[in-house]
Every structure is written in structure tokens, then in C-alpha cells.
Simulated scan of single mutants.
Amino acid sequence: MKLSAAALLALCAPSLAFGLVGNDWSFKTAPADGLNDITFPFNMAKAPTTSGFYFAQQFNFHNVTDVGYTGLQPRPNANGKNVVHAAFSSFQAGTTTRHKNCYQGADGGPGVSCAIEVPGNYRHTYNIEVKNIGGTTWRGTMTDTVKNKSIVIGEWTLPAGAGKLVNGQVGFVEYYIWNGQPSHTCDSLPKTEAIFYNPTSKTKGASGGAVTKVYEYGDCIGKAGYKLKKVSNGYDIKVGF
């Protein structure tokens, strides 16, 4: 049975019980054995500087079953500056790491979680590159595209036999505060906004990366203040009140 993107998201990422908006992404052309790298750009210029939301893109690999994802989370300002939290995670059992920004486990299950929290500027677009650096080891790197300054989020190694990145997956906007609450009302969702730009890749033969579809999912469809606007090379997503 072929699953819809929303159903695939729910199965692949069980932590996203309170996801709000999903998106499909893919490349028009890509090598059959997969991609060596993908860059996912995000912009949080209109996101409030409070914790609670996760703007992420998900990805998976040939020859292993479970996914990874990467993205940005707003945080309260510190010392008069925006704070950018970037995450890079694998949910694949058998993933290992020795990187200082990472630890074993992902949302209470197997895998590896990596994160950084640094001063930034929400008006700037941030690229997160997922790149193979040898064998089955992958690195997540965040780049401020205005300052052209990069910082490694983390590195982890998939089990032996894991292949390259699969062409196409899904992403999401999640309000993770609700994950720890016994109940919630849709009209209590705080307002936020982010732009998900089209993915790119330096892999030979990969072209035409795009966010191809954006949609609501979860238990607040039609009740979460969802608004969508097509922008150059991506989509501006709004939710909340």
C-alpha cells in the first residue's frame, strides 16, 4: 500500500504527535543510488522569539529503515540578540557518534541527537547541509547565508551498509509544547511563521529540488490559523493566533 506523505510522516516520526503542517520535497532528477548531500534553507524572520516550535525537514537513507531530520527552533532572545537552535538527528538504531554536540538517543528511542544554540539574526536565511563525509558518516552544518559563517551541528555514523540519501521525503512544523500536555485546544496555539525554501544539492546529476506540496495534518486541521503563501523558491507558512 502506498502511503500518503502525511501518513508516512506519522509513521516515520512518532515523536510528532502534535505536528501541524507537513510538506513534501524532492528533486526532479537525482542519481538512482541517492544523494551525497542536501541543503535545506529556512528563514524565521517573522517567528516570535519564544520556545515551542520546530521547523524541520526529514530525510532517509537507502538500505536502512528509519529517518533523520534537521531544522531550526526559535528561542528567547539573550543579551539583546536572537538565539538560533539547530538540530540534526538520526532515529536509526545502531547510529553512533563521538561528536561533542551529540548524544545517544532520539526522542526516547534509538538513534543520535545533535544540537547547537548560538546567537543569530532571524532576518537571515540559514542553510542546513546534510553531507556524507566518508563511509556511512554524515555531518549537519548550519550556515548564516548573510554572514557566510558556518558551524557544525554534529556528526553521526549509520550502521554498516547504509546508503546515500533517498530522493524525496517530508518536513513539518511542530508545536512540541503540546507533546508533554494531557490535552490542548487548537485556538490556544501561539502565532508563528517561517519560510521553507527549496532544497539544493551539489551531487552530480541532482537538479530541480523543490518543496512540492504543503498541507495541514494532525488534530487541528482547519482550526490552527493556517495560512500559506508561495514565495520565490519556497513557501511562507503561518499558524496560530
Rank of each mutant, 00 (worst) to 15 (best):
L3A: 06
L9V: 02
L11S: 13
L11G: 08
C12F: 12
L20S: 02
F27M: 06
T29F: 13
T29P: 11
P31H: 04
D33G: 02
I38D: 11
I38L: 15
A45R: 11
G52H: 06
D66G: 03
T70L: 09
G71V: 02
G80W: 14
H85E: 11
H85Q: 08
A87L: 14
S89L: 09
S89A: 15
G94K: 09
T95G: 01
T96D: 09
C102T: 00
G109R: 11
E117C: 06
G120H: 03
N121G: 03
R123W: 06
Y126L: 15
E129P: 13
K131P: 06
T143H: 04
T143R: 15
N148Q: 11
K149V: 03
W156L: 15
P159G: 00
G161W: 06
G163M: 12
K164T: 01
V166N: 07
Q169E: 12
E174N: 04
Y175Q: 15
Q181H: 04
C186Q: 13
S188A: 09
P190M: 09
E193A: 04
I195V: 00
F196R: 07
F196E: 14
Y197V: 02
G208L: 12
G208F: 03
G209W: 12
Y217N: 08
G222W: 08
Y226T: 02
G234H: 12
G234D: 07
I237N: 00
